[in-house]
């Protein structure tokens, strides 16, 4: 595991470069949208954060299923290393969405299907972290957390398809569908998505290193 610190440092430096390019592009090279003006810049934070929150939980669901089937402790550790990262992205998604909603929709929040299911996703992340901490080193902890993640992952298709299944204030997806979003906005969006992904890998590797060291110490004691 001696390669771990070197690897997360590389990802961290890569993240800093991407953040620099993204911020420069968003603030100095992005034209105002014909309807939204410069508030369109919020999209570069909101949309990648929403994607990260969604896909991290999806990955957590797959890892939890893997744990339930194989009972390999490493899968549980990987899930716990990931989940707090998703929690932060879910919070960023909700807060930036609210800050975008106020000038565009005239309201900070509505209980429509997309916003409510995203809020439930945030609560699921929070519940997972609380569950993990509450059960401490109890041997049942991993199975309980994995079962909870798998069950609450039912919310993911609702988050994804809520804008198609119900009438919502939130616009339908399709950012990368040709003609829906201008290329002037797609490039910074892709840069911030890469930044969030690279930053997530950095934090994941840091947390994984910490959790593995902790696990080794516990093994030595017992």
């Amino acid at each position: 595991m001696s390669w771990l610190p070197r690897l997360w440092k590389v990802f961290f430096l890569f993240s800093l470069v991407l953040l620099g390019i993204g911020l420069w592009w968003a603030f100095f090279n992005t034209p105002p949208d014909y309807q939204q003006g410069y508030s369109v810049r919020i999209m570069f934070m909101h949309v990648p954060a929403a994607w990260m929150a969604f896909w991290i939980y999806f990955l957590g669901g797959i890892l939890s299923l893997g744990f339930i089937l194989t009972r390999r402790g490493i899968l549980s550790i990987i899930t716990f290393a990931l989940m707090p990262i998703g929690l932060v992205f879910a919070a960023i998604c909700i807060v930036t969405g609210s800050l975008w909603g106020k000038p565009m929709w005239g309201t900070w929040w509505v209980w429509d299907a997309r916003l409510t299911s995203t809020f439930i996703l945030f609560l699921s992340y929070l519940a997972y972290v609380i569950l993990w901490r509450a059960w401490g080193s109890n041997p049942k902890r991993d199975l309980i957390c994995a079962s909870f993640t798998l069950l609450s992952a039912i919310n993911l298709p609702i988050v994804k398809f809520s804008v198609e299944w119900w009438y919502t204030l939130h616009q339908p997806s399709g950012l990368f569908t040709q003609g829906k979003v201008d290329d002037a906005f797609r490039f910074p969006l892709a840069i911030f998505l890469l930044f969030f992904a690279s930053f997530s890998i950095t934090i994941f590797l840091m947390r994984f290193q910490h959790l593995m060291e902790k696990e080794k110490k516990t093994m030595r004691r017992t």
Partner: peptide, 30 residues
Amino acid sequence: MSYTVYVLLSYGFALCSLALLLVYSWIKLK
């Protein structure tokens, strides 16, 4: 409020949250 305020608040919240996550993970590692 002008759009700039909403934009700055969004970027400020997002980047501060990520910075806190980084610091928290760093402290745990030390």
